[in-house]
Design a protein around this nucleic acid. Structure first.
Length: 228
DNA sequence: ATCATGATGTTCT
DNA sequence: GAACATCATGATG
């Protein structure tokens, strides 16, 4: 088949790298659906003055550009999506639902919008700091979901555009630790209102930190009613 | 476990 | 004005 699981043929670009280095920018210079499964299992580290928190990525989602009705970049560049149209290897952070942030890693060359949403991870370092940021959360739920992950890692709009391939930067994606592709599962994306059938959600089989699948349900804001 | 709903502000129409 | 790449909470099984 020409279409089935074409991402499986992608080759790791970091086999010769040591565990302490970041992924090279070239890793991101290909389509989001190729990059997404290759990110699973890798370490993603946030540094602040308080210390570092690291997650092992367990769930991601790919978004393409103008051909993907679910992508923020579908209708062309705007002030919000400017970073998505920029060079690869940078963080696209957006604010949603009036209170949450989500983070993507930008793929492909400048001018072509494509990105991978980081949906969930397992905390592997800095758990105490992560718990202080989400004091009511169980350990399992600390980074289980895209907005929770941003909370645990203290990611907000200040990090929009941050270079995740910069080894000295506040956000780093590390080389190494990729999971074997035999452990990768795929399915429809979560929480999107268009192109839901594209199987561009990727996760590691059996991981407790993977978020439960919910079909998207549009809801309008509650209105005051005249009868109370 | 699932389901329903309120919270909240930015972006785009 | 409506939608939003969501989460916490409370009800229910």
């Amino acid at each position: 088949m020409s279409t089935a699981r074409s991402w499986e043929s992608s080759t790791p670009l970091d086999t010769a790298m040591t565990a302490g280095s970041v992924l090279p920018r070239g890793f991101f210079d290909r389509s989001a659906e190729e990059v997404a499964p290759a990110l699973l299992g890798r370490r993603f580290t946030r540094r602040t003055a308080e210390g570092e928190v690291t997650v092992r990525l367990t769930e991601v989602e790919a978004y393409a550009g103008p051909l993907d009705a679910a992508s923020h970049a579908y209708r062309g560049p705007t002030a919000r999506t400017e970073v998505m149209f920029g060079p690869p290897g940078h963080a696209y952070v957006y604010f949603t639902y009036g209170m949450h942030f989500c983070v993507n890693l930008v793929c492909r060359e400048a001018g072509t919008a494509s990105a991978v949403l980081l949906r969930a991870g397992e905390i592997v370092a800095g758990e105490e700091l992560a718990r202080s940021r989400r004091p009511r959360s169980s350990v399992r739920d600390l980074a289980r979901g895209p907005a929770r992950l941003c909370q645990a890692l203290a990611i907000d709009r200040e990090l929009n555009g941050a270079d995740v391939c910069d080894p000295a930067g506040p956000l780093r994606i590390m080389a190494g630790d990729a999971v074997d592709l035999s452990l990768v599962r795929t399915g429809p994306r979560t929480g999107v209102n268009g192109a839901q059938d594209v199987p561009w959600r990727f996760w590691i089989d059996g991981e407790p930190s993977v978020s439960p699948y919910r079909p998207h349900v549009p809801r309008h804001r509650g209105r005051p009613t005249s009868d109370g």
